[in-house]
Design a protein around this nucleic acid. Structure first.
Lengths: 547, 547
DNA sequence: TGAGACACGTGATAC
DNA sequence: TGTATCACGTGTCTC
């Protein structure tokens, strides 16, 4: 198990219970920690729409750029509808939004808006750093980490890290499900807990941080911003109403729990202060210089204190410095996203089941069913695409049209093959018959009946779509003007409304007599056909010729 | 030409010019005139959002039901975004909305809203009837009409009937294009005409009615409603802005033109009054009784007056009383709708071209391109559906999945056939090689030459004691009267002093072309043989047949 | 009435 | 920069 869990399981389970009981997992964060100076992990609080503090502080100007380039947060705030996407590529910050399109896209929050907000957030965080920066031991003690990442899930009453890292094939979904047993979905907002309005701050994505020490000295200057609920004025009505439904009453419920198991905040604060000072005093480098290693000076200062976090194991991390990380990150992202997607659907279904008879629930039903429908359609498209010859383009219209062409090609090929097959079959039979007759004729008299002339009309078994195949087989024993016979028959056929397919005629020597055989394949194109008259006519011709 | 045009061409052309110059064909009406008592044609003015007069007037209660059941109007008010759809089926009023889905659906005006509005409108019209009902001569004089219909197009400055009727295959689009030449699209809102604010009434869908007589005594009680511009507050911004762009300045420009060519309004008014009284005094029947014929008593009263309308020719109408009308109506609807759809797209494109650099034009571009994309996708879906085995369902997901299955089936079939073929081929070769190996040794040329006709003469290796075996092989690529070819060759061979051994002839499908092959085995009994002459003779025959 | 199917306009991305 | 495609939520209709 390569996952690294930052909290001990007991603390995790407590948070988990709080999440399950409050039944409103409202957001999930995916953090990406970039190589040095990412040894410093900075927690950032939610997203803020208030743009009043947009101006960059000159004193943090250099840091701003640096941190903004180095740290990215991929936040999926479920019921707020934020769907930003940021990732790294080739070791450099890069936008990878493809995977995030799978998520719910709330049109009122655009990508650009998110970047704005992210920038604001980063700035606020950087301002916040003075007071709140935290260097978690697992990062702090691991000076050789190049890549690590973690996922958070949280609600208004608490947050939990679903931590994972590195290029493992570990199934995030399973992990999350392990932490969120099935009854998580079933315990909807039915449980009412006693309200405790004393601590009024709403949800925050750094509860684990706060639970350790971060509530010690909040800057009053920014706390109003930092703890603001993000404005929902731009959100669609249904979501807005849905989010209003979230219980916001039992924050205090777990307050003691937050504080209890963790050490003295002051020592952490001092450590953090030193840490951020070290970061600030480090030269402002360009993004390319981030590749250079930096050994933070506080390495052993905090790593041994008691904590809910397990200490980081650098051995596990050192083997993850390979190049193929971006792929694994992607798959991690995908896993996380699909899981979250499903989770959100389930949550919506739960919500809908809980309140079955109002307009917003029908809206929700409609939305998720429409989503499912789209999903199904896209799956079908994918499946279809996989069946096509590989060189084709991938957009839907192309898939459809090339499918059409491909179908036609296949059909043509099939008909060709069938025809070829038929031909071969007839040849095969005729040649086989020849031999068979040669062989059989001696012993058996079934075929070589006493009759001199034999006329067979065989309806071919495989009748193609455009007609019924008919084999006319004329056998004449003894001498016979073969050429005349064939010509006469063919001339007769010219007058008949049937398609001429093939003729075979030859003369074989059987023991005593010669056997003249004419096999003609015709295609009766659906028109009525008097078989008796046809046979009689042939018989007359044969009689005429052999007379 | 089965179309019936109600205006003479000169008046029509004048209206047309006004439409073209104002360049804002803002709506189109399709009228359906139901069987008796539809001999009375009632013009209805546009749609009204003002619901202040929703209460049915009891004095018109019976009429209300009757007319509302009998008369339907299919209005497509282009830049107002109304997309209602009403039609008849099996002789009874029926909603056929399928075709209208092709049109622009403005989500803010729901179907239900339209019905409301239609009901309002009909009621208003019924109230209006007292003053304005008009019995056009072409309806009036044709008491035997069962079905007739007409299309109107109009803008703020005028209206024109694109009249048509009956189950003809007449192409409405061509007709409309005849009346709206190409430059109609090019003369966008560039021409500025002097404003004439005197006549303030905006667009109305019964200008031709008014142009005849209807302005004579408008009820002041309802005129404010009737001439209200429908509220656009519910419309999307883009459309709202677009409609604002419509020139509304040159209403007076054509005012004289409306009035000039038409007869005295008073006489019409009297006729109408009589007509509506006749309708009102007739018993209020159920919809089933509409099948009964009614002969209006005013038949000859108005039919002979001079008018811009041509008199209706009952002979033309009498032959359209067949049963298949609904189908033709549908196709008419479809034609009209697709034309209007395209026209609207063109108009939007024009608008967009006129104002290339603002946000609403990009929105328009986006919208119409997205529409086109959807259209293309749907066409592809249709095309794909048509290729599938006919028994399948028709929804998109089913199309995709069944296509997938079908593809797999076809692929399996192909592989099976190929396998079978290979097997047969190996058999064939194993049996045929024995003979073939011997034969090939003579003279062989590449079979896949480019020549269309190929004649091979191969001397069989095994020359028996009683002669020299000769294979004549004639290949003709492309279509060819195989039967004739064989007969001609055989007849030629009859004249040649050679023993006929066998003939094989068939037609194969090669990749793109058909390959006709005749193989004849002869035995040259020792006599001298002019191969060149033989070959030439065969070539002549082949050329003769394939010519 | 309720689920499924479509079309629509819109925001966003990719080239 | 303009022109594709795509996903989304919503309105509507059908069964």
């Amino acid at each position: 198990m390569d996952s690294v869990f930052f909290m001990d399981e007991e603390a995790r389970a407590r948070f988990l219970r709080s999440l399950a009981q409050s039944a409103c997992c409202t957001y999930v964060c995916l953090w990406y920690y970039y190589p040095p100076p990412s040894n410093y992990l900075i927690f950032m609080d939610g997203l803020y729409n208030d743009q009043s503090d947009l101006q960059p502080r000159s004193s943090f100007g250099c840091l701003d750029r640096k941190f903004f380039d180095c740290y990215r947060q991929c936040v999926y705030s479920i019921d707020k509808g934020y769907v930003p996407g940021l990732a790294f590529k080739e070791g450099l910050p890069y936008l990878e939004l493809k995977e995030l399109e799978l998520l719910n896209r709330v049109s009122t929050v655009t990508q650009r808006q998110f970047y704005q907000e992210a920038r604001i957030k980063v700035r606020l965080t950087l301002i916040h750093i003075h007071q709140h920066v935290y260097i978690p031991p697992f990062i702090y003690s691991g000076s050789h980490i190049l890549w690590t990442s973690a996922a958070f899930m949280g609600c208004r009453s608490g947050e939990i890290e679903i931590g994972y890292k590195g290029p493992t094939e570990h199934n995030l979904e399973m992990e999350m499900k392990r932490w969120f047993p099935d009854d998580f979905y079933l315990q909807s907002q039915h449980k009412e807990l006693p309200p405790a309005p004393k601590q009024n701050r709403p949800s925050s994505s750094s509860s684990s941080l706060k639970s350790l020490s971060m509530c010690s000295s909040p800057s009053t200057e920014y706390s109003s911003l930092l703890f603001n609920i993000p404005s929902t004025s731009n959100m669609p009505i249904s979501l807005r109403e849905a989010s209003v439904e979230q219980p916001t009453k039992h924050k205090q419920q777990y307050h003691g729990l937050y504080q209890a198991p963790y050490p003295n905040p002051e020592s952490d604060d001092a450590a953090m202060t030193r840490a951020i000072l070290a970061v600030i005093s480090s030269p402002s480098t360009s993004s390319s210089s981030y590749q250079t290693q930096q050994n933070p000076p506080h390495q052993n200062q905090v790593s041994h204190r008691t904590s809910a976090f397990k200490s980081y194991n650098p051995v596990l991390a050192s083997k993850f410095q390979t190049k193929a990380t971006s792929l694994h990150r992607q798959s991690m992202l995908k896993q996380a996203i699909s899981f979250l997607h499903n989770m959100r659907l389930k949550k919506l279904q739960e919500q809908m089941q809980g309140t079955p008879r109002n307009s917003i629930s029908t809206q929700l039903t409609h939305m998720i069913s429409e989503r499912k429908r789209r999903e199904k359609l896209n799956e079908s498209f994918q499946a279809l695409k996989s069946l096509l010859p590989p060189g084709s383009k991938k957009d839907k219209a192309s898939v459809l049209s090339s499918t059409r062409n491909y179908l036609q090609t296949l059909k043509a090929e099939i008909s060709e093959l069938k025809q070829k097959n038929q031909l071969m079959e007839s040849r095969w039979f005729s040649s086989a018959n020849k031999e068979a007759e040669k062989e059989v004729s001696g012993s058996s008299s079934t075929c070589s009946s006493t009759a001199r002339v034999e006329i067979q009309l065989i309806q071919a078994a495989e009748s193609t779509s455009d007609g019924q195949g008919i084999d006319l087989k004329v056998s004449v024993k003894g001498d016979c003007k073969m050429l005349d016979l064939v010509i006469r028959i063919l001339e007769f056929l010219r007058k008949v409304d049937m398609e001429f397919l093939s003729v075979e005629a030859d003369t074989q020597l059987q023991q005593t007599t010669t056997l003249n055989q004419v096999i003609i394949r015709l295609n009766n194109k659906g028109s009525e056909w008097d078989e008796l008259a046809f046979r009689e006519a042939i018989a007359r011709i044969v009689a005429d010729v052999t007379r």
